[in-house]
């Protein structure tokens, strides 16, 4: 990235790095060019805002997922967790209307409930994985079922809806913004920037990578392994809470089908971005590009009628697999 005039002995690794690093960036640029050629509205303000705002939910979650995966873990429960948090948040806000009335305090209380629920859910996952030492896959698979079913139960099989007036008051959090940039986009950008800084520049990011690369080495190097691992799940839980805060004002409701498959989209975005699934190396900016690639594919299929939008999943699936093949070529060249 920095010096292009590398010494001759630095050959193989340096030479392979650009493809490995630039692959996702080039794919994103190609998609933007393709989209612009297929539909003149693609680059319009409305469409760009729409795509970015809708990517924000998955994007915010995927930033947290980057830390979990870099630390050698996985979290399958985030989609259900988002639905559950949305449900709890809506119920809490409805219940608080008589005391707080419709206004800023109500929205702040709702946000607080969402963040605390996310924090608690992340702590529970982290505790079971880091302290009780149950495999992350198992814990979060179980949690996925639990939160999904709890949401359905809370909604009594139907939909939990936010009080109409509260919803009208809360709506601008999704639809408005400052200087023409929608709030979800601003929040996503902030989370991504902080995440990138944390991953690259802080001891926490370094510790995550060392944990994912070799837990034994991390332990022998006085890294507080349990605490770091727990930290990744807590961070992800809180970010799911943040994502839900941005999501609820969009529709104002939650049901058993809210957030279905979000976990897989988030994991896919992380992998497309170049983070290793087995842990040890992660990059947040890559994840952001991964999220954008996934939502652009969706958007282009909807705008252009060449390929059926029903094939969205197929194309996304192929891209995830290609991304991993690309990663491996980058690695074997070392």
């Amino acid at each position: 990235m920095t010096d292009t005039t590398a010494a001759p002995q630095a050959t193989s690794r340096r030479r392979s790095l650009p493809l490995h690093v630039l692959g996702p960036v080039l794919a994103l640029i190609a998609l933007i060019v393709l989209g612009a050629m297929l539909n003149s509205n693609f680059l319009s303000y409305a469409n760009v805002t729409n795509v970015l705002a809708r990517s924000a939910f998955i994007g915010i979650i995927a930033v947290g997922m980057t830390f979990v995966i870099t630390g050698g873990g996985i979290d399958l429960s985030v989609g259900s967790m988002a639905a559950f948090i949305a449900g709890v948040m809506i119920m809490a806000m409805n219940a608080l209307i008589p005391t707080l009335g419709i206004g800023v305090p109500l929205v702040l209380a709702g946000m607080g409930v969402a963040l605390l629920t996310g924090l608690a859910a992340g702590m529970l996952n982290g505790f079971l994985i880091a302290k009780v030492r149950i495999e992350a896959f198992i814990v979060t698979l179980g949690a996925m079922g639990v939160y999904r079913s709890l949401t359905t139960w809370l909604a009594d099989g139907g939909t939990l809806s936010l009080d109409f007036d509260a919803r009208t008051f809360y709506r601008p959090v999704y639809y408005d913004g400052i200087l023409g940039i929608a709030w979800p986009i601003i929040v996503f950008a902030l989370v991504a920037i902080l995440g990138e800084l944390a991953m690259r520049k802080t001891p926490f990011g370094r510790h995550c990578a060392s944990l994912g690369a070799n837990e034994q080495v991390a332990k022998y190097s006085a890294v507080k392994v349990d605490r770091v691992r727990m930290g990744t799940y807590v961070l992800l839980g809180v970010l799911v809470g943040v994502a839900t805060i941005m999501y609820v004002p969009r529709l104002g409701s939650a049901s058993g089908s809210t957030g279905v498959l979000w976990e897989l989209e988030a994991i896919a975005a992380v992998i497309i971005g170049g983070t290793l699934l087995k842990g040890g190396f992660g990059r947040v900016w890559g994840t952001v590009i991964g999220v954008l690639i996934l939502s652009l594919i969706d958007n282009i299929l909807n705008l252009a009628s060449i390929v059926s939008p029903y094939l969205n999943g197929t194309i996304q699936g192929v891209i995830v697999i290609l991304a991993v093949v690309l990663q491996r070529q980058g690695k074997s060249a070392e």
Binding site: P203, R206, H207, A209, S210, A213, N214, Q216, V217, A218, K219, Y220, S221, A222, V223, G280, F281
Partner: peptide, 24 residues
């Protein structure tokens, strides 16, 4: 297996134990 992160750079290995000396 316990001493070095073989897939990481020299620097990341060197400073891992004393990372708190390189900024809070």
């Amino acid at each position: 297996e316990k001493g070095l992160l073989l897939t990481k750079s020299l620097t990341e290995n060197l400073t891992l134990l004393a990372l708190d000396r390189f900024g809070r």
